[in-house]
């Protein structure tokens, strides 16, 4: 199964983690590159996700006359669930696809082979800095995106339902509890690692010339989304059970 192979690939990367120091310059370059490229996507995704969800919740709460709690509800709902998934979907496209295309075209132009022949381990040289850069950026951007989505929701609701930001922010503390934050952060970290792994694996394993590169990007996009959804389900289930056991809400 693909998942097993990818997990094995992950162990190979982790084993080489101490060697990151040697390739630190490449890591810094990659990190800056990925972060800058994805910033606008993250902000856009964040704003619109927050805004759309705010709108939807507003419509539903209107029936109950409970609009006043929109702030808290939207924030909680967004950062716990839908926010991480949707923003991660966007990032999987931007960040993941790009890196797997890069690694893929390096594979089909024999760069990876050439480096091997000169006595250098291609995973340390090519994959390690990129994986770390992608994973780290993804995590940071996801968190950033979630923050933006809260703001996006706030602005949308202000413009559309006339609910003042102050009121919005008040209800956040009532409803967006610690559990929401833990859930959001855990998901960001796990999604980030998954994205890094999937895009590097597919890029590195590209076969079949220029067409193969397109295939790799497609596989990365699809696998990332499926992995994110499954991981989301797993994390939610596990953490909810843990919270219930601990008596938190």
């Amino acid at each position: 199964m693909i998942a097993a192979q990818q997990f094995q690939f992950l162990t190979q990367i982790v084993k080489r983690m101490p060697l990151l120091w040697r390739e630190r310059r490449e890591f810094q370059l990659q990190f800056a590159d990925v972060a800058i490229r994805s910033l606008s996507t993250t902000i856009t995704a964040g704003i619109f996700t927050g805004a759309v969800l705010a709108l939807q919740f507003h419509l539903q709460l209107k029936d109950f006359g409970a609009e006043s709690v929109l702030g808290g509800l939207n924030t909680s709902g967004t950062i716990r669930e839908v926010g991480p998934i949707l923003i991660a979907f966007m990032l999987a496209g931007k960040v993941g696809a790009y890196t797997s295309a890069e690694l893929g075209s390096m594979k089909v132009t024999d760069q990876i082979q050439a480096v091997r022949c000169l006595g250098i381990d291609p995973i340390t040289f090519f994959v390690l800095p990129r994986f770390c850069a992608v994973a780290l950026t993804a995590v940071l951007l996801l968190v950033f995106g979630l923050v933006i989505s809260v703001l996006g929701g706030m602005v949308a609701v202000w413009g559309i339902a006339d609910i003042h930001p102050d009121q919005y922010l008040l209800t956040i503390s009532r409803f967006a509890s610690n559990t929401s934050l833990i859930l959001a952060t855990t998901k960001s970290v796990v999604f980030g690692i998954l994205m890094g792994l999937i895009c590097c694996y597919n890029g590195y394993q590209t076969e079949g010339g220029t067409f193969g590169v397109g295939e790799s990007v497609r596989k990365t996009a699809v696998q990332s989304m499926v992995a994110i959804v499954i991981a989301d389900f797993a994390i939610t289930s596990i953490l909810e059970t843990v919270f219930r056991w601990l008596g938190w809400s």
């Binding site: 790009y98 890069e102 075209s105 089909v108 132009t109 010339g209 590169v213 990007v217």
Partner: peptide, 9 residues
């Protein structure tokens, strides 16, 4: 190859 990758991305 890079062009294809870029287009798909």
């Amino acid at each position: 190859a890079e062009g294809v990758g870029e287009a798909t991305t």
